[in-house]
Design a binder for these strands. Structure first.
Ligand SMILES: [Mn+2]
Ligand SMILES: [Mn+2]
Ligand SMILES: [Mn+2]
Ligand SMILES: [Mn+2]
Lengths: 218, 218
DNA sequence: ATAAATATTTAGACTTGTCTAAATATTAAA
DNA sequence: TTTAATATTTAGACAAGTCTAAATATTTAT
């Protein structure tokens, strides 16, 4: 049985692999987990001993199939708990991540599946992230951000890339949510901000905002 | 913030205090937590430093008000999660204790209260144990066991003292549950077993069984 | 291709919670 | 009330996960 710490390393390595494709390096993991490179090295050796990562000195790491499966399982638990917290306990979407960080480590073969059934097999978490199924299959978002999409067409927001509380509260304040329809009215060359139309009114959003919104053409 | 281990010590000391009234001794705690007396001594010093127990060498411990409040809070979380697992996720009552042992350590000021509301403010957990309210008030069961109660009267089962899976499955097999009505038909002097009537049929139960059932006269 | 900058690993130490073995207290028995 | 049994504490050690400082490797720049 893995410790909470080991699980968190696996999850972090998994998400870094998604971003970078090549081997994940020590420093990145350290930064992500707010720990030191030397601590990461120690842990990578342990994970390698357990056949969860392939590790060669100075070469960074890559998850083994084994390690990847476990990482996906933890992400599945995390996202299902987030759905529970928002849909059933009525938390706001900016308040659930830290709680899910704890809940994802509850060890049970049956709990995740029962929770999933109770929630009616949701496909996405409150931030639009896809929930892996029981077999670990997961379809990731295309990198289709509002920042890089054509003007004057209708799009629907399908996810947020940054799910920090600060960003989510900003979205709340302009009433943008998963499922909202948006149309780009104009772009500003100077700072890449844009005026968009949504919910029958139009307003300006920063580049920082638009590049963190996954959209799909309607 | 307390560690999971510290929380488990507090919870254990609390339940031992309920049984024994005087100071709880090192050996008992060690047995209950399946650890060694020397480990317990170490921890008692730490808990005393944090003003959670009163500890004097060789004299055992007693929870401070502070420690007691925390213990009750953990018990509250444990029992609410058990209700969730049985009522919402449809676990059987013999399968939820170990999971609740994990869930009770999720740290959140709001989660317990939201969960309680979601479950419609249950007063008892699936084993009939009372759930402390938000202020930590709790009314414990009177020690009214089926084993020591008059013959030929009607009682209702309000709780189980032992909530091991083995015992709960035995109760399932004879269809005895919280809320079941029972009447003692006869007692056997030799082994203190008794024949009882419940659900329109009568059968024999051991002393071991009857002394683990809390009942209330109808 | 050598030097400088950056990344990574090693060495040694600390904390938490645990253990065994030995020392000391308390309690029960004779 | 002295001895024997039992309970408790201390001493010293270990594993997990972390840290700082120092040693090595790798990468980048000149
Ligand atoms: Mn999250
Ligand atoms: Mn986590
Ligand atoms: Mn329980
Ligand atoms: Mn516990």
């Amino acid at each position: 049985m893995l410790t909470k710490t080991e699980e968190n390393y696996l999850k972090t390595i998994y998400s870094l692999e998604l971003l970078h494709s090549k081997n994940v390096n020590t420093t990145l993991i350290a930064k992500e987990l707010k720990t030191r490179a030397s601590s990461v090295t120690d842990m990578l050796k342990k994970l390698a001993d357990k056949d969860l990562v392939n590790y060669k000195k100075y070469q960074g790491v890559k998850l083994t199939l084994n390690g990847k499966n476990i990482a996906v399982k933890i992400i599945r638990r995390h996202r299902l708990w987030e759905v529970f917290l928002v849909n059933k306990l009525h938390y706001n979407w900016d308040q659930v991540h830290e709680l899910a960080e704890q809940l994802e480590h509850i060890k049970s073969d049956t709990l995740t599946d029962k929770l999933e059934a109770f929630l009616n097999y949701p496909e996405f978490d409150p931030h639009g992230d896809p929930i892996p199924n029981k077999d670990g299959d997961i379809t990731h978002h295309k990198n289709n951000m509002l920042s890089s999409v054509a003007i004057n067409n209708n799009y629907v927001i399908i996810g947020v890339k940054d799910s920090s509380s600060a960003f989510l509260k900003l979205l709340d304040s302009v009433n943008l949510k998963i499922g909202s329809t948006v149309k780009i009215i104009s772009k500003e060359e100077f700072d890449s901000s844009m005026v968009i139309e949504s919910n029958q009114n139009s307003f300006s959003i920063s580049h920082q905002t638009s590049k963190n919104l996954y959209v799909k053409k309607i």
